[in-house]
Write a protein that binds this DNA or RNA. Structure first.
Length: 303
DNA sequence: CTTGCGACCTGTTGGC
DNA sequence: TGCCAACAGGTCGCAA
């Protein structure tokens, strides 16, 4: 679920809930979900008892100083210059519960399968308890995400290796134009999804931005005139900002990272709407695989 | 260098 | 109703 707006929403929630809390204990139920140090994910993918032990011991007694987002990553700054870097991939969720909520199911906003269940659940892989009795659960049905504990030097290395492109929300048009020239041979959809070009946009917001901009996802970037680039640049920000507002409004005291819990789902114009009429011209929306991801768009409006 | 595809996982959905 | 292929908000590695 999580693209930039969802991760941003979670970041805000975590910043509020976790700040100044001190870790009391950590339980790891699935070794491969946790990493320590800057190694490539694939190299430390399988996990081990030793890594888990290092992860747990490294977190114990640390205080949460700050929560930030970079692209689709969450970065939790801990005391002693340690950092917890989390990527939720397709199905990761962070669920925070205060002490008095712990043993009762909570209705999590409008999340689809929302965690009414008892925690830890079947899909809880990591559980962090704080000294005030509150807890943070990392749930992930598909197990693609990870939590990584690093020191400052390793943090820098991790992000250097990942080679992320600029944040779309603070990207100037001049910069956007520059990267579109560098990546002029890419199709518009590939351009938006490529995290080394621009970071944080995923399949939903790529399709939504292209629809608003009346640009066909297969269109080569080099064929766009300046005005179209401007429109796209503006619409990316518009879509992301609106989604952040919607996500933020639906999440109150606690969080789920289930993107479908945000109210923005109701506002999707094309994503997930193959066969439905285009909201502008009523032509049936079509879908097509582009770069192994499904794109949904209007053949009539998007040229 | 790029493109394209399988792999990583589990759960849900839609067509027959 | 039941089965099972196809698909899901992401990324990585590998082969061509």
């Amino acid at each position: 679920m999580p693209e930039l707006p969802e991760v941003e929403t979670i970041k805000k929630g975590l910043a509020k809930s976790l700040k100044h809390k001190q870790v009391k204990d950590v339980f790891v139920y699935t070794d491969k979900m946790v990493k320590v140090g800057a190694g490539k994910i694939s190299n430390i993918k399988k996990g081990s008892k030793k890594l888990t032990k290092d992860f747990v011991n490294g977190l114990k007694n640390k205080k949460v100083l700050k929560v930030e987002r970079r692209a689709k990553y969450l970065i939790i700054t801990l005391s002693n210059n340690y950092f917890l870097v989390i990527h939720l991939r397709m199905s990761g969720q962070l669920i925070y519960r205060r002490k008095k909520q712990l043993h009762q199911p909570i209705l999590l906003s409008v999340a689809k399968n929302a965690t009414k269940e008892k925690l830890p659940s079947k899909h809880t892989h990591v559980q962090i308890s704080f000294k005030d009795g509150s807890q943070l659960f990392y749930n992930d049905t598909r197990q693609f995400g990870h939590l990584r504990l690093v020191n400052q030097k390793e943090l820098i290395e991790v992000f250097k290796t990942s080679n992320l492109g600029p944040e779309p929300l603070t990207l100037s048009f001049a910069e956007f134009k520059k990267i579109s020239q560098i990546n002029k041979n890419k199709r518009a959809k590939d351009f938006l999804l490529n995290q080394t070009v621009i970071s944080g946009i995923g399949n939903i917001y790529a399709d939504e931005s292209l629809f608003l901009s009346k640009i066909n996802p297969t269109r080569k970037i080099s064929s766009l005139i300046e005005q179209q680039l401007k429109t796209l640049h503006t619409n990316i920000k518009k879509v992301l900002n609106k989604a952040i507002l919607a996500g933020g409004s639906s999440i109150e005291t606690f969080l789920t990272t289930n993107g479908s819990s945000g109210k923005y789902t109701e506002k999707h114009l094309v994503y997930g709407k193959v066969g439905k009429p285009c909201p502008v011209c009523k032509t049936k929306l079509v879908s097509k695989k582009i770069g192994s991801r499904t794109s949904t768009y209007c053949k009539h409006c998007q040229k």
